[in-house]
């Protein structure tokens, strides 16, 4: 008798946990994030320097215009994304504390380099700063 009474309770708990996880996952998937974009051309990132807001998660779109595969890599950002030729890739960054976060192309680290500056100051939307790639 007791087992028949406790079973629905445990089942309810499992259902609750699964629903919570799904809810969190769906919230993340459909949540609107501020978008930023970077272009990879001739093994160089444009812009090579970009400013994003602190303590906010942002969406970063990387457009690989080269004919070869590259890998966007950053140890400080904990991100590693394969960029296939003539394709766009999306990753999410943050929330980050203010500072400088380096990134590079793993297959061409001598040329494909850049930095993301995380600033607490209010930024215009989207805050992409075009600068010459000083590599």
């Amino acid at each position: 008798m007791s087992s028949t009474l406790t079973r629905p309770k445990s089942l309810f708990k499992v259902q609750f946990i699964i629903s919570y996880i799904l809810l969190m996952a769906s919230y993340n998937v459909f949540a609107q994030r501020q978008e930023f974009s970077i272009t990879l051309k001739d093994h160089l990132f444009y812009p090579a320097e970009m400013t994003i807001p602190a303590n906010k998660k942002i969406k970063l779109i990387i457009d690989n215009q080269d004919d070869s595969v590259e890998e966007f890599d950053s140890f400080s950002l904990n991100r590693e994304k394969v960029l296939f030729p003539k394709q766009k890739a999306t990753i999410y960054i943050g929330p980050l504390s203010p500072g400088r976060y380096d990134f590079f192309g793993e297959y061409h680290p001598d040329s494909a380099r850049g930095v993301i500056i995380v600033s607490e100051a209010d930024l215009p939307i989207p805050a992409i700063k075009e600068v010459d790639n000083a590599n």
Partner: peptide, 25 residues
């Protein structure tokens, strides 16, 4: 980390940084 990267799992602020002791690279 891959799921965090595409925002399927929520990633929070870093708790600490030991990069100055042992850098990941």
């Amino acid at each position: 980390q891959l799921l965090e990267q595409v925002d399927i799992i929520s990633s929070n602020v870093h708790l600490w940084s030991t990069s100055h002791l042992i850098a990941e690279d």
